[in-house]
Every structure is written in structure tokens, then in C-alpha cells.
Design a protein around this nucleic acid. Sequence first.
DNA 1: CCTACCGATCGGTAGG
DNA 2: CCTACCGATCGGTAGG
Lengths: 201, 201
Amino acid sequence: MSPRKTAAEARTTRERIVSHSAAIASVEGLQGLTIGRLAADLGMSKAGVLGHFGTKQALQLAALDGAAAVFTRLVWEPAADARAGLERLNAVCEAWITYLEREREAFPGGCLFTTASIEFDARGGPVHDEVARLFRMWCRRLTEDVRIAVNNGELPENADPEQIVFELVGVYMAFNQAIQLFADPEAPNRMRRAIRRLLAA
Amino acid sequence: MSPRKTAAEARTTRERIVSHSAAIASVEGLQGLTIGRLAADLGMSKAGVLGHFGTKQALQLAALDGAAAVFTRLVWEPAADARAGLERLNAVCEAWITYLEREREAFPGGCLFTTASIEFDARGGPVHDEVARLFRMWCRRLTEDVRIAVNNGELPENADPEQIVFELVGVYMAFNQAIQLFADPEAPNRMRRAIRRLLAA
DNA sequence: CCTACCGATCGGTAGG
DNA sequence: CCTACCGATCGGTAGG
């Protein structure tokens, strides 16, 4: 019934689908995301939804990359002004808290990357590869700032940057769990204390 | 075709189903676990499988509790001989490594509780409640040993037991990810270093 | 524990 | 972007 749309309208529709896909997937997982549910929520037909992507796997990848764009905007960009090294590391960690605590409208199920990384950690395929790629990219970015902090003398000379990033990621996942599974109001403070210990000179 | 079995045989069959359910769920999640797949793998009919549990949800709960029994046997029991406090905490952490590194036949997809806690962290219902209950129970146990370690003078007087357990859980999840998503051979050493820092006097 | 079935939903396609 | 449809699979039931 709906007539064909212009390219601009189609782009808007695609963005709505991607954004809502990320929201659903944060709760149900990328496998639990279904085209029928998506179509019903958005008041579209299944074929209308799937037409933008072709396959469910392409939709999963689009949801992942849409969420990555939000993550970049809410976490990396606000910290971009901070001085490279310890200051920027602290800014990124604070942005994590804001991202997980306040953006629960966008991702009601918590961090989609944490969810997806666990969901696909024992499977092969393009979705697994993309999740791993994103995580690796962010870890490299953090490692680089830890290295700079060491060179600046803001962290001990003998600090192991990859070890510190390993532990930072752990703190992030513990924080996600404290918020999502336990609804612990102390979660942000626990997170900050852990980061302070980890990034202490 | 198969005649009705004795109660003992039925129990054995049930255990086979539970054990294989936990293995599948560690990879596919507890939602991704399906009765059809289970029946095919075990050479049974779907009705034969489901008859032992009644509903898929009951099967999910049985898989969770079966895995909890394995976890108790492989993690808590080996550490039970250690002295309460710091010594037992270290024994439990070493058992985590053995559990995740070597028991990949039992749980090819890594720790089922980590998987399930993320899968159900934004949903209600009995499975969510059971996962949260298990996690809380284990965290309480760890917190108690941290408290004992503080009283023994093995940890600083001003150490916050709940904070340390929060960070311990984070290290455990980072370790699970390093093994599963990144297949990092350095994962056990990273884990040990993180624990050493965390449980240092 | 099996066969035989149920309605619902899955991802996806044809054609407009 | 829609309607109309496909085969496959889902969880679950009846009856033996």
C-alpha cells in the first residue's frame, strides 16, 4: 500500500530499523532479534524491513555498526578533547559510566557489545569477526593511551599496558553486570574505585 | 519403539540430557538451546526429551543447576581444603583457571553462568532469577573469605570486601573473554597477575 | 520413550 | 514498501 519512497526517506527508515534493532538486540541478543518482531514494532511488513538488508546476518551487522557509531559519539568523542594519556583514560572511563547508566533508552539491555561478544564468542562467521574486530580496535586505542601515560610518568615505568587494558575491560563488564543483573545503585562508585586503583601512579 | 525404562535408566537419560543441554547452551545460549537439536544429538524424539522436564523453561533451569553442580565440584570442592581467607581465595581463583581452560569439553562455549547472566540480565522470569541467585550466592561466599582474610591481616585493614569481589568477578569475565573471543594464550597469566594485584597485602 | 500431530513463528522469496 | 506465499523449525500435546 505504501508507495515507493525517495532515497532520503528510505535512508531514514533504514536508520529507524538499525536503531531499533540495536535496542532489541541489547535485550534479546543478536540471535533473539527477529524480523517479525522488528516489523511489528515499526508498523512495517517483514519484507519491507528485510529489503534494506537482504539477510538477517546483514541486519545483525548493521545493528552492530549502528551501535558502534553511537558508542563512538557518546564515549570516544567526548573524551577526544582531553589530554592524551591518563587524563583521556579517565575521561573515557567516566564516559562509560554515562553511556551505561543514562543511555538505557537506547540500549535497555545494557552494552550491546558485551552481550554480542559473549553471544558469539564460541561461533565462527562474520558477526563473530565483527564483534572481535570492534573490541580489538577499542582495546588498541586504550592500550595506546596507557602507553602514553607511562611515557608521561603518569603511570609506573614498569606498568604493562596490555595487562591494564585487560583489567579495565573486566571492570567495565563487572559494571555492566552490576547495573543490569543486580540493579546495584553503588555500581558507578564501585566502577570509579576500581578504575582509580587501576590507574594509580 | 523404545520400551519404557526403569527409574534408574530414566535418571541416567535425564542426566545425559542435562549435561548435553549445558554444553549446547554454553555455545548457543539458553534461548538458543532447542529441544529438536537436543533430541537429534542424543538420538531421541523431541517428546522423549521434553517428557523429563515438561517445558523448555524447566529444561533451562535444569541445565543451569546441572552446570552449577559441575562448577561446585570443580571449583569450590578442590578449594575446600585450603585455609579460610587469602589461601582459599587464591585456591578458588586457580580453580577458575582450570575450570575455564581445561573443561572446554564440558562447556565448549565457556562459562555458562557468564553467558546466561548476560543473556537474561534484562529479562524477568525464573531463569533470570536463578542466574542472579547463583551469582549472588558465589559472591557472598567470596566476600566472606575476603572478610576473613582482612581479619587475619592478610589484606589491608581498610579493604572493602564487596569492592574486591566486584573486581574479582570482572577479572573472571575478562578472562572468559580472553579465552573465548580472542583465544589468547596469555589469558591465564593475565588473570593470575590481576588476581595478585587485587589480593596483595 | 515413541509416533503423529498442532498452531505459531522463523528467515526468506516472488511479484508488483 | 506491500501482499502473499514458501519450507523449515519452534515449543508443546495426545495417545499409546
